[in-house]
């Protein structure tokens, strides 16, 4: 069973976002990058599936700059067998471009299971799994919090509004992973040493024309300054007063 995990290199979640001079992208000077948090669950699930089946390969796949090699080396250290960077220097926010470029790669390098995070924490698009599955003709379940594989069919659980949904899905399939699915392992020293010898390939991404362009990127309006009402229990009546008569919130 060949498993592909789609990974994105994103600004660390503790980044204070600053808008670059072009007004369309973020200032990346001084920003540290990391593996998208949701992709960590996808990678862990791929490793668990491989362990369950006792065979197969896990390929970590990304689109991004060559700098993404660092994140991919981390994926190898955690247990992926191989990593591929489809290179581009642009920040791609257009989901159709990403999905088509990955589909092109996967048509040439077929896999039965494709896993990804439910969304990247930069563009917050939450669209890759379904988009990619449509282009590959695969089944798909998104935002899964529980996943089991038996006889080539997945049984997945996902949160919906006020309930949970149980979905079955035949392989080949694309599954997007949510927090709560598993507890990602971290790379240990042995894994880091092994990763140095694992294949990490680069190829230029085959990107179609963009289906949309960024007009602007802006910071949200700042909140008006608040105030400290007081200290300890004695401040409670003043808080209630403010919430009632000033904020009209209770």
């Amino acid at each position: 069973m060949d498993i592909v995990v789609c990974i994105k290199r994103v600004p660390a979640t503790d980044t204070a976002i600053k808008i670059a001079a072009d007004g369309k992208s973020i200032e990346t000077n001084g920003v540290s990058f990391e593996m998208n948090a949701y992709d960590e669950f996808a990678l862990e699930q791929a490793l668990l599936i491989k362990e369950q089946l006792g065979e197969g390969t896990v390929t970590a796949l990304t689109i991004g700059p060559s700098l993404a090699q660092k994140v991919m080396r981390d994926a190898l250290a955690r247990g992926a067998d191989k990593a591929v960077v489809l290179t581009t220097d642009e920040w791609i926010y257009d989901g159709a471009q990403v999905a088509q470029a990955l589909a092109t790669y996967l048509q040439a390098n077929p896999a039965q299971i494709v896993l990804c995070g439910k969304q990247a924490v930069d563009s917050d698009n939450n669209q890759l799994a379904g988009n990619l599955a449509a282009r590959l003709g695969f089944g798909c379940v998104t935002e899964v919090t529980k996943l089991e594989l038996a006889d080539g069919t997945f049984t997945a659980e996902r949160d919906i509004e006020g309930a949970r949904e149980v979905v079955t899905c035949k392989t080949p399939a694309v599954i997007s992973c949510n927090k709560g699915l598993n507890q990602p392992r971290y790379a240990n020293l042995k894994g880091i040493m092994k990763a140095k010898k694992k294949p990490l390939e680069e190829a230029a991404a085959d990107l179609p024309a963009a289906a949309m362009e960024i007009v602007s990127l802006e910071l949200p309006p700042a909140r008006a300054d608040g105030r400290i009402i007081g200290e300890g229990v004695d401040a409670v009546p003043a808080l209630i007063e403010a919430l009632r008569n000033e904020a009209k919130a209770i």
Binding site: I17, I19, D122, D124, V215, S216, L217, P220
Partner: peptide, 12 residues
């Protein structure tokens, strides 16, 4: 919203 609301993106 992008970056969990730390910024807002307008596209065409």
């Amino acid at each position: 919203p992008v970056f969990a609301g730390k910024a807002t993106m307008t596209v065409k």
